[in-house]
Amino acid sequence: MKILHNFLTMGGYAAYVWPAYAVTLLILMGNTIGALRNNRKILKKLKQQLLVEKRQ
């Protein structure tokens, strides 16, 4: 219980520690998702392009 309390309040610095971790997590996740999305996008685009070329 004491550990949990300390974990949440951060000895009175929760208002600084938790936002710092939150913004880090957000940016790292955002970077990963963005990179994966771009990768999928180009795979799809190249596939379509190739199909068009085949038909011609």
């Binding site: 300390n6 951060m10 009175g12 610095y13 600084y16 520690v17 710092a20 971790y21 880090t24």
Partner: peptide
């Protein structure tokens, strides 16, 4: 105190 924990990021 606990404020130093920001060092880890």
């Amino acid at each position: 105190g606990d404020a130093y924990r920001i060092i880890y990021i």
